[in-house]
């Protein structure tokens, strides 16, 4: 039996938005530690890894580890039926094929219930090639700062953030650099990752030459995180 109650559905809504941007369905692993997910997009270019600790729920009960195959769009539709300050309860039987979701208004005068059918997810599902990629962004990190540059068909653009400076919106930028590095990525995916921005005030980009980019957003005060991994573009 799995049962978890969250006092505010906002985090779950933002989290599902941040996941649905990359994947259609995923296996959500439920254990006594909380809820986690790791899934690649259909083209195997990017990966999303999410963890929401049991502390995000009260109470959180998980008698046996479960893997729930969830169609993210469907869950998103159900979540849209809740108000932001609703209390949400998730329930699943150990051998069931349904995830029950209950939303209650804080004063208890309204309650809505949904039963979502779980799907068997074939982890080895064949990937579809993406025929077109968006434009590329090159990220260059040196001791002077962080520079994003895009070469388009008709125009070029670049943005630079300095180590001790502040971004346009006044947010601080801090850089922890071992070696300078330059990597190129498909902008399209970075745009997808920004879907997670409402979950956190700060984003951390980790880059190393010839390895995937890691983009991390922390969830709440130690409640968990969502991380995206993105394969770089390679020189031919």
């Amino acid at each position: 039996m799995f049962e978890a109650r969250m006092s505010d559905t906002t985090v779950m809504k933002r989290l599902m938005d941040a996941i649905t941007t990359l994947i259609d369905d995923g296996s959500f692993d439920i254990s006594s530690k909380g809820i986690s997910l790791q899934a690649m997009d259909s083209s195997h270019v990017a990966l999303v890894a999410m963890c929401l600790r049991n502390e995000a729920f009260d109470p959180f009960r998980c008698d046996r580890n479960l893997s729930l195959g969830i169609q993210c769009k469907q869950m998103g539709k159900i979540l849209k039926c809740s108000a932001n300050n609703d209390v949400m309860t998730l329930k699943a039987e150990d051998d069931g094929d349904v995830l029950n979701m209950v939303f209650e208004s804080p004063n208890g005068d309204r309650m809505s219930e949904f039963a979502m059918k779980l799907t068997d997810i074939d982890i080895e599902q064949s990937c579809r090639d993406l025929s077109n990629f968006g434009e590329s962004v090159t990220i260059c990190v040196t001791k002077d700062g962080l520079k994003f540059s895009v070469k388009g068909d008709s125009s070029n653009a670049s943005m630079k953030f300095s180590q001790n400076g502040a971004g346009d919106d006044g947010n601080d930028v801090s850089i922890d650099l071992n070696d300078p590095c330059t990597l190129t990525f498909a902008v399209k995916y970075l745009n997808h990752f920004t879907k997670a921005a409402p979950l956190s005030e700060r984003v951390t980009l980790s880059l190393s030459n010839d390895t995937p980019l890691v983009v991390e957003y922390k969830i709440g005060d130690g409640l968990g995180h969502i991380r995206y991994y993105l394969a770089p573009k390679m020189e031919e």
Binding site: L47, T211, Y229, A231, K233, E235
Partner: peptide, 14 residues
Amino acid sequence: ATTQGRLDSFFKVS
């Protein structure tokens, strides 16, 4: 010219 890398070449995918 650049080609899009895939995560499979960086991680062992089981």
